[in-house]
Design a protein around this nucleic acid. Structure first.
Lengths: 147, 147
DNA sequence: TTTGAAATCAACTATGT
DNA sequence: ACATAGTTGATTTCAAA
């Protein structure tokens, strides 16, 4: 799909705040609210916009720690783990990756005891590397037209 | 803030689809729409819900590659990079982390040439490790009450 | 429950092929 | 002449008081 300048602006705005009304967006880009609605609907239909999500502050919900955990699966252990990981509520995202490790997971945890217990669940499947998040340098930078 | 069962359900629903109306949510959990509105407003005020974001499919927008890139900064190069990275449109998220590396970045790229050019920008600041994302095992699993 | 605002739908208009 | 993208105004639905 062709994404023109106006659509890029709409995408940027909705990535910043999905609750902008069509009228507000229209005011910013110089279109009527039905025209904006039409453009957004098309972006949704084509799959450029795949959904609208509330962003939850994990610390406010009691998850004090966030971490990136990689797994280098033992021989024959990757498939079983791919099934198992779906049951882990702590895992926000899990990706297959190239390189020395097979998977990287973004996880939230209550505290260091929770982290320890979580790692214990993984070590039967492979080598585990854990990087605890200290701070956010950039968070949810909207995708835009670049270069 | 105390988050009861109903609020956890509301959070789960809004993380799946931020466009549920108060009435729809109310129907699912057996509350009136104003009651739901009041609960959501409190979750927002307290900061449990920090925003509502449109989710954009990066492949549909022309970014064929997604990767995790870590940086182990050279002596004295971390601070300069923390300033510089804010200018990089490819970087969706960037976190300070514990461990051998200082930073992990989630980036989107047009193609392997773009990736090469991006890495070239980083190598003056430190050691770079790149893991290209092959597939999503778990994507945007909502935070919930667990264990 | 009521009020105001916003989304939706219909009909019409302008522009470009 | 037809297709595409936009406006305007009426109706319905939603959210805020």
């Amino acid at each position: 799909m062709k994404i023109d300048e106006l659509n890029w602006t709409i995408l940027r705005l909705l990535q910043q705040n999905a609750r902008f009304t069509n009228a507000e967006i229209g005011r910013k880009i110089g279109l009527s609210s039905p025209a904006v609605a039409e453009r957004i609907k098309k972006l949704e239909d084509v799959g450029v916009i795949s959904g609208y999500k509330a962003e939850v502050n994990h610390i406010q919900t009691g998850y004090q720690l966030k971490a990136f955990v990689t797994l280098k699966a033992f021989m024959g252990k990757l498939k079983p783990f791919l099934d198992k990981v779906k049951e882990y509520k702590e895992v926000l995202n899990c990706y297959r990756i190239t390189g020395n490790e097979n998977l990287v997971m973004e996880v939230v945890l209550y505290d260091q005891f929770h982290l320890e217990e979580f790692i214990d669940r993984l070590i039967t499947y492979g080598e585990v590397r854990t990087s605890i998040v200290l701070s956010n340098v950039i968070e949810n930078n909207p995708i835009g037209k670049n270069r």
